[in-house]
């Protein structure tokens, strides 16, 4: 079926099987590879995107329900990788393999929209649906706090890519 919706502010029309999840529309039809497949059953959070600012598991949203929706993916979180979370993630060097991190950041971004200064309990609550198999949880937590600081006016000290002390 043919559906029209918005991804990262751009209108798109795609022709895809009605039961194809948004995850695969993004990855294989629109070639937006940032959103990841981990489980396909809403258990890992690797496929997290925003639907009008709310974090959702894109592996659970079929094409048939996409008409008119506004979706934001990791590629659309900022135009140039300068969302406070993206800065904090690099500053603190959060990733190990990195596979879960787009989903983590999308969940965290929705949290920061709701809470200016999230507590550890808020973070537990908001991030519990995102698995990091490499277990970078300590740094994810630290980076969310750091991003909240940056967002609230704290200085960012992001290092140039590939180099930092």
């Amino acid at each position: 079926m043919s559906v029209s919706f918005k991804v990262n502010g751009k209108a798109v029309t795609v022709d895809a099987p009605s039961d194809m999840p948004l995850l695969w529309v993004l990855r294989d039809v629109l070639d937006l590879k940032g959103t990841k497949f981990g489980c396909g059953v809403a258990q890992c959070g690797a496929c997290t995107v925003h639907l009008k600012g709310v974090p959702v598991r894109s592996c659970q949203i079929p094409v048939s329900s996409l008409n008119g929706l506004e979706i934001t993916t990791i590629e659309g979180l900022s135009t140039d990788g300068t969302h406070p979370l993206q800065i904090a993630w690099q500053e603190i060097d959060v990733p190990q393999c990195g596979y879960c991190q787009a989903g983590q950041i999308m969940s965290a971004a929705a949290l920061l929209e709701q809470k200016k200064k999230p507590t550890d309990a808020d973070i537990d609550q908001a991030m519990g649906g995102n698995i990091c198999r490499c277990a970078t949880y300590n740094r994810i937590r630290k980076a969310i706090h750091r991003a909240a600081d940056i967002k609230n006016g704290g200085a960012s000290t992001t290092a140039p890519s590939g180099a930092a002390k």
Partner: peptide, 23 residues
């Protein structure tokens, strides 16, 4: 010293890097 991974920026901006991303 503390050196962030060279792919960090690509990871946090969702650039294709992994086997599953190959086209």
């Amino acid at each position: 010293t503390r050196v962030p991974q060279v792919d960090d920026k690509k990871i946090v901006t969702g650039k294709p890097l992994f086997g599953i991303d190959v086209v």
